[in-house]
Design a binder for these strands. Sequence first.
DNA 1: ACGCGGCTTCTTTTT
DNA 2: GAAGCCGCGT
Length: 755
Amino acid sequence: MNYLDELNDIQRKAVTHIHGPVLVIAGPGSGKTRVLTYRIAHLVKEGIPPWEILALTFTNKAAREMKERITKVVGTKANRIWAGTFHSIFARILRSEATKIGYPADFSIYDTSDTRSAITEIVKSQGLDTKTYRANMIYSKISMAKNNLINPIEYKNDGERLLLDKQQKVPYVYKIYDLYVKKLQRAGAMDFDDLLYQMHRLLSENPENVVEKYREKFKYVLVDEFQDTNQLQYSIIQHLVKYDGSPQNICAVGDDAQSIYAFRGATIQNILDFEKDYPALKIYKLEQNYRSTHHIVQAANTVISRNRRQLKKTIFTEKGEGQPIRVVRAMSDNEEARHVVESILEQQHRKHYKHEDFAILYRTNAQSRVFEESLKRRRIPYKIYGGMSFYDRKEIKDCLAYLRVVVNPRDEEALKRIINYPARAIGATTIEKLTQIAAQQSWSLWEVIKRAHTLNFAKRTSKALREFASMIGLFQEKLATDNAYDLASYVVRMSGILKDLRKDKTTEGQSRVENVQELLDGIKSFVDNDEILEQAAHVEDKSLTSYLQNVILLTDLDTDEENTNRVKLMSVHSAKGLEFKSVFIVGLEENLFPSLMSIKSNDRNAIDEERRLFYVAITRAEEELTLLYSTSRYRFGKMVYNNTSRFLEEISPKNLQMDGTRSSARISGAGMSKQAVMRKSFARKTSNSTYKKSSSFQPSPIQKIVTGANIIHERFGPGKVISMDGSGMDKIATILFDQAGEKRILLKYAKIQVK
DNA sequence: ACGCGGCTTCTTTTT
DNA sequence: GAAGCCGCGT
C-alpha cells in the first residue's frame, strides 16, 4: 500500500511539494501529523539523507511517534532524522558548540525553580524587596525580553519597557536582568529560554562560520505548531533557511485558531510574516476534519467565529451528526468530579470505551485533585499529566543536583542545594560568607570552597568544607571512566542521601527511597539504550552529562507508561495535538475558564486567547463531549461562587443537551439579562440546602429495581424502567426518564430510588 | 546550626 | 491547601 494513497488531494499536494517554502494551515483533526510524517517519509524516499532533515515538533513524544511511523515506510534509517522539540534539538547542538560562545560543553540547564531562586538571590543582593520584585514576575519579564531578542543593554535603552516597569513599581528589572545573565554565565548554566537564545546567538554571531555548517547540514526544515513559535524561534529558523542561494526548503504547519502560547511570546505574526519573508510561499489549507462528529465541529466553529483577526478557513466533517454536547451543572467541585466519573462508567458501558478513550481537561492544574480522588474511589486507573512531576520531587532534585555539581561544579543552584544536604554543618552563615568572597574575587562558589583552607574559617567549618570538596572531587574523578548509571548509584550511596532517606521509616519516607531507586533505574535504561529518552536511539553518548541534559527537557507527556490504558487528566494546554473518543471539559466558569487574569487584564486579546484555548479543548473530542461547571468550588481553601463561563453561551443550543443535576437545570445566563443571572444565582445558592438533602438520597437495593418500576434517579430525575439485562453485579436497566430521555444505567453504580 | 511551626501568599497556561 | 519565609527554641 502506497502511503500517498492514504491522503486526500490537498494533503497529497502538501506532502509531495518538497522544494521551496510551504505553509500548511491545518484545522484540528485535519491530518496535520499525517502530512508532516508522510512528507518526511516522502523526502527520504526521494533520496534525501535522513540526517539532513530537521523536524521541530512540539513535544518529544510527537517526534518519537513520527519517527516510528516514518520507520514503517522507509525503515530504520528514519532514526537518523533530527526530530525533537526546539529545546531538545538546540540543547544537543549547543552541547557541541557551546565553547564557541563562552559556555562550557558541560553546561547546566536551569529549570524554573533554579531560575527563580537565582533571581531572588539577585533581588536580595541589590537590597530590593522580594515582595515587590517577585521572582515569577521578574522571570516572565526576562523571559519575554529574551523571546523578543532584547538583551540587557537593549532593555536598558528601551524607554517603553523602562516606563512600564516604573509604572509597575519595579524600575530595576533592567539591572536584575543584566546581573541574571552574568550570574548564569558564571555558573555555566542556561535557562530554558537560553537554549533558544544562545542558539540564536551562536548563529547570528557566527563564530568559526558555524552557521554555514548548520545550513549545509539541515537542507530540509519542518516546523510543527508554527502558530506557537515566538520571535526568537522564528529568527533561528530564518538564520537556517533564509540566506543568499538558499533553496528555502522550509515547511511550516500550524493553525492560527489554535495559538495558545502568547504568554510565552508566541505570535501568529510569524504566520503573517512568513508570507512576506518567503514570496515563493505555497499555502495549503487542510479544512476537512476527520476527527470529530458534526455537533462538535459545529460548536467549535461557532465559538471561534467570535475571534477577530483570523485566517479564513472553513472546517467541515463528513463524520455523522453524533451526540449533542452535554452540559452539566454541578453544585460543587466534588459533585462535578463525581459526575464525570459516573459518566465515564456509563459511557464505558454504553459504548464499550476503554479507560484510555477518556480525557478530563481543565484550565489549571490545581483542578486535578478532586478528579483524582473520585477516580481513585471508583478504582478507575488514571494518569495525571503536568503539575508536580516525578522530577519535581525533593529527593529526585537532590540526587540530580549532586550529579549536576559533579558534571559542572560551577552550577551554583545545584551546589547550594546539596552543600548541606545531608547535613554536614555548613550552615547559612558559612554559605553567606562563601558567597561574599565569591562576589569579591569573582570566583565561583566552588572555587571558594576549594580554597576554603586559605581563608580563615572556624576549624570545624574548614574541615567540613574540605571534606565536602574532596567528596565531590572523588566523584568527578569517576566521571571519565564510569557510565551515568555506575556513577549515579555511587554518588547516591556515598553522598549519604540514601542513608538519610532510609532514616525515615514512614510510608512517605519509604516511597522517597523507592523514587530514588526509580531514578537510578531510569538512568540505567538510558545507559542500556532503552527508549525512555527520545533521543536515546541516536545519542551514543551515555555519559552523565548527556543524561542530565536530556532528562531535564522531558515532560511526563514524553514518557510512555507501560500501562497506557488509563483515563488521562491534563490541562488544556497539554492536550494540544491529542485526541480522545470522549472528552470532559471541566470548570467552565468565569474567572476560571476564561481565567481571572484574562478578564482582569481587560484586554480583548487575552480573552481571545482563552477562547482559542476553549476551541482547542472542544476539538480534542471525537465522539462524546461533556462540558461541566460548578456553582461553587474551593479556591485557596475558601468557597467561591463563579458565574457560568461566557464560552458556554457561545455554543449554539442546537448542539447542546442540557443535563443538570436536576431536570430544571439550564445554563444560567444564556440569553438572560444580568439581573436575571443574579437572581438565578441567588436562587441557586438558597437551593443549595435542598440539594444537600438530596445528597443523602437513599438508593434502593438493586433487587427492587424491576421492569415497569417507577423510579427516581439521583441525576436524571423520575423515570420508568423499560427493560432489564445483564446479571449479578452487571445488571443494566433501560430507563425512560421524563426529562432526560432513554438511558441505559449500570445498576451497581447508579443511585436509584424506587417510588 | 538546625528543625519546627506558624505566617503569608499564591495559581494561569510550558519548555 | 501547599510551599516558601521568618522567627523561635533546642
